[in-house]
Amino acid sequence: MSEQAITRAAGLSCFQNPKDIKLLGGGITNVNLTVTDEGKQYVVRLGSDIPEHGVMRWNELALSQAAAQAGFSPQVIHHEHGVLVLEFLTATTFTEQDVTNPANLPRIIDLMSRVHHELGRVLTQPVLAFWPYQVNRTYITRLNASGSRHKSLLPDLLAQVKRLEFATGPVDLVIGHNDLLAANILDDGTRLWLIDWEYGGYNSPLFDLAGLASNNGLSEPQERAMLEQYFNAAPDQYWRPYQAMKCASLMRETLWSMTSEIHSELDFDYAQYTSENLDRLTAALSDFANT
């Protein structure tokens, strides 16, 4: 796969004299490479639609272009079927420790607030909605049909989906990123950038906030401070629906990994990733039951 990816990147029409083509770590739904051409460096993302995950590359492209126009993401240099070429940013990729750093967390929350309030204004193409409860029900249905090794867990997870969706209640809609892993946040020393719009689309802002917390291990005081900063209001009124979305985010990541165990051909330990997320989900559901 690596040799095929390098050959594909080298043959793209947007490059004049591609050199130093190297695999770029981090992608677990696609293959990423860096390419140097005419003195400039680029990122090449290779990946087709992934129906089992709801990934549609036309949706990723539309949101990547809009996010670049709004100044939140790197510029889209070229695109064709299964290929997205982006400008390379000289920046540090965040880790979970970077996200929870008190110096960084307020910056990330400010970035998400601006994305939610500004990105939709420059978006001129239809994009998908990402409703986590529909996403999770779909995963559960497909995992049952596929004979997942986790099949015994699915009935209880489906029952939890119903409880969590009811607790979420009415929502406001924004353009969400919907995949706030630490590795999707970059810091160039001056500002933060957001990358990877595979799952972007209309959603409640609570899902991005919950995903940021659940994917990066925020403490409860950090979560409450995050909600207070984002909404400029006391966090208590948002706490229960936020907790429901936090469980939904962790369930989605868990079901995503269960599905990848069956369908993905990438070299990644999905079984271990499933186990880690199941532990986080179990803890979050316990906290939610006590709210």
Rank of each mutant, 00 (worst) to 15 (best):
V83L: 01
L84F: 01
L84E: 02
V85H: 04
E87F: 06
F88N: 02
L89Q: 05
A91K: 09
T93D: 03
T95D: 01
Q97C: 01
Q97V: 08
V99T: 05
V99R: 06
T100N: 10
T100A: 13
N101H: 15
P102C: 04
A103V: 11
N104A: 08
P106N: 08
R107V: 02
I108L: 12
D110G: 13
D110I: 12
L111R: 11
M112C: 13
M112E: 13
R114P: 06
H116K: 14
E118Y: 13
R121A: 14
V122K: 10
L123A: 14
T124A: 14
V127N: 12
W131K: 10
P132A: 06
Y133V: 03
R137Y: 02
R142G: 00
L143D: 09
N144W: 12
N144S: 14
A145W: 11
A145N: 13
K151P: 02
S152P: 01
S152C: 11
P155D: 10
D156A: 14
L157I: 10
G169E: 12
P170H: 13
P170E: 15
P170L: 13
V174E: 07
N178P: 00
L180Y: 05
I185D: 09
D187Q: 11
R191Y: 00
R191P: 04
W197G: 04
W197V: 02
Y199Q: 08
P205A: 09
F207L: 11
A210C: 05
L212T: 06
S214D: 07
S214I: 06
G217C: 09
G217S: 08
P221S: 09
Q222C: 01
E223P: 00
E223H: 11
A225E: 10
A225W: 04
